[in-house]
Design a protein around this nucleic acid. Structure first.
Lengths: 265, 265
DNA sequence: TGGGCTAAATGGTCGGACCATCTTTTCTGA
DNA sequence: TCAGAAAAGATGGTCCGACCATTTAGCCCA
């Protein structure tokens, strides 16, 4: 009834994120209980929940209600449900899958275009490479050089290795993201990669010429990161991503058409 | 049976995102059908789905199965379920709620700390302000000046208006994000704000001194954006966020304690 | 005319039954 | 003796039918 003055009022202007009511819904309570248990560490990754028929007794609900809760937990990525004997609900480690999925929804609802993603990615990769240049360890440098070598071999092998080349390129980007020591970047960039990949990779066909260009960018980035040349590394990364984006744009239209036109003669 | 060579193979290295099997699960099919209908525009925002008892007939499933599907759609933020007569499932517009929720999970699972968020935010706000400085319209400028005036009044009113000041500050940040004309930034920054707010706002108490500092930053940013001084605007925004972060850090510890310690006996 | 009461529509919960899938164990035949 | 096939059992997936709780719409009476 009474308002608590100035208490979390400032949250409300942004999103109605925290639902006040609806606690009447039992499955929501079940979700919260299990979620808390997982996040508090009372349930550890890999641990199995009791079978539904036991769990429903423990929580004093019906199986239907329990199952609605399990569906939500599954979709949240907190548990994995396996079928058959020896199956059941296994606690998963929280991952970035859900962020990818939500971003995917935004894209599919046409609130976000791939150019938006590309623009965002350009500066995010720039920033992440700058951080990596500051924080990289000797081990990191070795890893980058290994990936570079892998990419180099692909370039030599030419067009047939184009697919592997793109994979290696993305591995390098994610490796650099990890070197920023900031998991937010890793999650966000992985999400972006997932979504760009989801919509484009089928159409991307890289020729040796493009591979060579991209390879030079990679060399440049790795060198700058290794030497701790922050500014240079950032510029190089932004340039690299921009090159990829313009390249991607050449393939964009077919991807945004309907499926019927995917295989134009 | 047969493998299609090099087809979306490169996606798989990143996340096992796309589940191959489990299409045996009926509710998943129901989710897909309704989701597609919404994203294709066959179901529009605000439209009501038929009541469960009808829908189950249409889709040839049981009510339990249908309800598991509806739970997922609800959690995805695609529908909203209302109780009672005249209630039912209403199609919602896709929002960033879900990204906020997933990020929240990452934070609560301690994969992400608030310093990670702060570091990320610093550069994201910088980038977004630079874009805004390039793309702002006359109308945008008026909006910013309006918000600035609002903030100015709070500063004059002193400590009692601190809460409203913080709100206005965040409104300004979101307004600038919109001016980047890139919804990815809007979504990401809103997500970050939500989560920072969620964990901190209760503890943040701003005094007039801090308000004055922040107000000067805001003036600086608005001026630079208005005049299209890209570089300056970016620097100012980064500085502003950094100041907020260091300020925030002074309040950090209590927020990260367990609930049991919130109300020490 | 207005306010309260009733009825109906709709989601929420329950219990129990059976099906489908997978693992484990047991059985069978070489 | 051992490999492979068959049976058993555990567990999630689906279905049905009933009843409860909440909310709106409409009726009735003062």
């Amino acid at each position: 009834m009474m308002d608590v003055p100035g208490f979390r009022a400032s949250v409300e202007i942004m999103e109605p994120l925290f639902k006040i009511a609806k606690q009447n819904r039992i499955f929501q309570d079940v979700v919260n209980q299990i979620e808390d248990a997982i996040l508090d560490g009372r349930l550890e990754e890999g641990e199995r929940l009791p079978p539904e028929r036991e769990l429903k007794e423990m929580m004093g609900t019906s199986r239907s209600t329990l199952r609605e809760a399990l569906r939500i937990l599954e979709y949240k990525g907190l548990i994995e449900v396996r079928l058959g004997m020896g199956g059941g609900c296994v606690v998963k480690s929280v991952s970035t899958e859900q962020m990818s999925a939500s971003l995917d929804l935004l894209i599919r609802s046409q609130k976000v275009t791939l150019n938006h993603l590309a623009e965002f990615r350009e500066q995010a990769e720039g920033a992440v490479v700058e951080l990596a240049a500051e924080r990289r360890t000797a081990r990191d440098i070795r890893e980058l050089e290994g990936l570079l070598e892998e990419a180099g071999k692909c370039v030599e092998r030419g067009d047939p290795a184009a697919d592997e080349f793109i994979r290696t390129d993305q591995k390098l980007h994610l490796a650099v993201a990890r070197m920023s020591r900031n998991p937010v970047y890793v999650s966000v960039l992985r999400t972006i990669h997932d979504n760009i990949g989801h919509y484009f990779e089928r159409f991307l066909v890289m020729k040796q010429k493009e591979m060579r260009e991209n390879y030079r960018d990679m060399q440049d980035i790795v060198r700058a990161v290794s030497h701790g040349e922050t500014q240079h590394a950032g510029r190089a990364a932004r340039m690299h991503v921009r090159r990829f984006n313009t390249y991607m744009n050449r393939f964009k239209e077919p991807a945004q058409l309907k499926k019927s036109e995917e295989q134009t003669p």
